[in-house]
Design a protein around this nucleic acid. Sequence first.
DNA 1: CTATTGTGAGACAAAAATGTCTCACATGGG
DNA 2: CCCATGTGAGACATTTTTGTCTCACAATAG
Lengths: 191, 191
Amino acid sequence: MSHMGYSCLMALDRDQVLRSAAALLTRKSTATMDEVAKAAGISRATLHRHFAGRDALVRALESLGIAECEAALDAARPEDGPASEAVRRLIRAFEPSAGLLAFLYTENQLFEGEEQNQGWARIDERLTALFRRGQEAGEFRIDLSPAWLTEALYGLLASGAWAVSDGRVAAKDFTHMIAELLLGGARRTDA
Amino acid sequence: MSHMGYSCLMALDRDQVLRSAAALLTRKSTATMDEVAKAAGISRATLHRHFAGRDALVRALESLGIAECEAALDAARPEDGPASEAVRRLIRAFEPSAGLLAFLYTENQLFEGEEQNQGWARIDERLTALFRRGQEAGEFRIDLSPAWLTEALYGLLASGAWAVSDGRVAAKDFTHMIAELLLGGARRTDA
DNA sequence: CTATTGTGAGACAAAAATGTCTCACATGGG
DNA sequence: CCCATGTGAGACATTTTTGTCTCACAATAG
């Protein structure tokens, strides 16, 4: 039965295609379907077999991004332990998805579809809840709103992903640099 | 002599066209020249009179962005006084250009032209120099590299611009939220 | 008023991207 | 071996976007 082989290989392929598409579209958001296909190492015909068109491709990217964010949130257990530690776990869990997230964060003002926006709203909610919890526990300062901290987390994840992919910072420092900046800032505290 | 009237009005128009183009392209990077023109409130013909094509438009946006960043750096005197204060002045000086900068930061991996890249390299250099100065003065922690702090500053400026334009944070808090997060982080220090 | 200048609207062809086919080929299971 | 399935290459019509042009109109300086 070739059906198993089909779904298995397809799923892997599709995932990799989406990832390379995200990587390309982040750098060159006006890239052609043909360029996307070449970047993924497949032909335009095959790309078109998987995704009916450019819109479908972007929507698929968004769905994947939402799913990965949800999974990362689940894995990081944001409700457990000190909020600072939860933020660290969260950033570590987000790291593999950071490239995709960077693309979506800069592009997602595009669609206002029902499902998609609900997905992001849910993720935003879980993130702001974490920062709110940290504030209520007296762990985080209260003059920076949870909404802003959430926004900043997205921005820093995107900056980190780009800085790593451009070689401006080492990949192994990704989590540390984002977490330390977000939590502790640039100022010395042991002075 | 109508020449004065010409250059005067044109300069203003051109600037406003570029700004609305940046605002639109940030949200929808695949926007058509026609959409850009409509967003600027002018006809496609007029847009095309100012900018030969899409490339020319983006290049003009980049030139404007570089010029504004240089001007902001000059105005903020990054070499004077405590580095923290210099960073605050810098963020305040960057605020009017943040929307434009957000677009360029997410899109500038596009061109690798000589002049443009030199312009950005120069700005990067001045920013990293400021963070390096802060580290050498013992004001900033040394485990976050100046290159990363520079990158993070770009990212936070972009996040701030989007958050403000989407109404997620108040415009008046722009400088404070970015400066405090970048310098002090989310963690309470007075606990 | 009159001439100049910039503009908007629209026509138009050229170029680019997209969506849809067909066909030959490779691979892997039966 | 033979067949089914996914693929790459490329042809093709369609659609979209672009670049260029013309013309009428408004504003403004002289």
